[in-house]
Design a protein around this nucleic acid. Sequence first.
DNA 1: CGGGCTCTTGAGACGAATCAACTAGCGTGG
DNA 2: CCACGCTAGTTGATTCGTCTCAAGAGCCCG
Lengths: 304, 304
Amino acid sequence: MIYGLHPQNSRTFIVVRIMYIMLNNVFKYILLDLYEHFIVIFLLIFVLFIKYDNLINQRTMIIFSVNMQNIFKTLRSKSYSVPCEFCSIGSLCIPILLNNKLDNILDRKMSYAKDEIIVKANTPFTKFYIIHSGALKTFVTTPDNNQQINGFYLPGDIVGLDSISTKIYNNNIQSLTNTLVCELYYDELMSLVDTQKNVRDMVFNLLSSSINNYQKLVLCYSQKKADERLATFIYSLYRHYEQRGHSSLNIKLMMSRADIANYLGLKIETISRNLSKLQEKNILSVRGKYIFIKNLNALIDLGN
Amino acid sequence: MIYGLHPQNSRTFIVVRIMYIMLNNVFKYILLDLYEHFIVIFLLIFVLFIKYDNLINQRTMIIFSVNMQNIFKTLRSKSYSVPCEFCSIGSLCIPILLNNKLDNILDRKMSYAKDEIIVKANTPFTKFYIIHSGALKTFVTTPDNNQQINGFYLPGDIVGLDSISTKIYNNNIQSLTNTLVCELYYDELMSLVDTQKNVRDMVFNLLSSSINNYQKLVLCYSQKKADERLATFIYSLYRHYEQRGHSSLNIKLMMSRADIANYLGLKIETISRNLSKLQEKNILSVRGKYIFIKNLNALIDLGN
DNA sequence: CGGGCTCTTGAGACGAATCAACTAGCGTGG
DNA sequence: CCACGCTAGTTGATTCGTCTCAAGAGCCCG
């Protein structure tokens, strides 16, 4: 449990959580450089808080130091976790339904390191993965041994819907950063579907909207040029964060250029060139993995 | 009720149906030219049958003549209908479940002429369409007023799964030939989902395998060249017919070159050129809308 | 038989891939 | 703390594949 936010003490945990959400919401429109300074200020406040908290003892101190490191890391990478109510599962979170105690929800979360293979393709399908924080990608390996990414998954997303019919995982699932996922067993979900109408409707909606997304992706592939595809991709990231309650013009790309290129059916050089092109057009400001959307409407227009 | 197979008299209908299915199954391996002759023989037998059927009166005669025209048309285009047990809905056909009488099933079928718009995009979603015979396409119209096809649907397929989450039809649905569809109301299906486990599982499988198909399509788009895409497309048609109990190396393209091009994200000239290329390689034999697969393995290899 | 389609084939234009060189960012170890 | 190497990312020159434009062939239908 070195990775991820996982203190044993639930009171201190809540404080961490509140400040964390605050930071994500209050500062979401602040530019990259400013952002860095605020993190320092935040950490100072945080250290003071620890100093005067009478709960502190040797053991929690160690936990805090571990957490602080993680929080710092997380903030630096501007990764985020969705509060459970913004999850694609929404208020119907299975752990919550099964057992309404917070501790139990936390116990359901599994932690994975960067680049860890979570699931290998063609292994038996038993459970879905719902991302709490971090990011995943799914991909298949083609006969000529290179990979084809067919989805990026961000906090709140559910992975594995395509496996219901095949009973095996059709894709490899791999973490892009340190990632916390909730596991959701298919059988458990089905028993809830039978007893609760809202769960049934939710699952149908998830499946249906997944089909919808793929239809849009197909449309993107089949008639858009490289720059249009890239614009669509970046806008879809923006939309995704927005829908999960993190609307910000600052976007951190969790995936490498190579992954983006692979996903969009282009080559890495083309991505690079077109990012520069969008920057020249004053639509984006790119700095490594960070993108700032300078002209959202132009971005939307370009992506059609 | 001019189009489609829709006699009022169920005894005569059954005979038509049996002969129709016979023809589809007995002659499925026979080449195009031979096929034409058998249709003539079949029609002669059919006329004799009518002559000595004591049920005939003025009214049924008219119905028959209408139907004969349609049957002739249908056979000439080598269209086919799936017996209900090969439908994607399978043995769980809702009309059958709701009311086990044949007449009632027939009443559920709606008939559409070639190129008829069955559903306009963005209209309220109430029911799925399951194809009995013929073919449909679904497409969206882009802002610059040209269409993007995102699916062809053949007998046994269900259309509209993506609309569950949006509550509106996301695509226009248009018939490619004269088409018979079974209508399936969403509410009816949901009430069956709640009461019958096998229906529930079927619906989940349908949704999940639809996601699966789109994943494969995305893979096809993002890293295959024109000839590979075309090979994949033709093989997928072959597989589709095979799964519905009509395995034949003779394939009739229900859609125009323009539709194929649009669907595969290519231009009509590229389709034409690559069909010629596949013919030169002795993989296919193309004659207008008819394709004969000369080398199935080579086709599969090319499509990866 | 001609008019309107769809489909095929050819020549040149354009966009993305490829190959190659170079730069920036990052962690590692001295 | 800096030098080092490694990887990720950028930029340029050339090649290759598909699109575009254009003309002609085949087919259905009145």
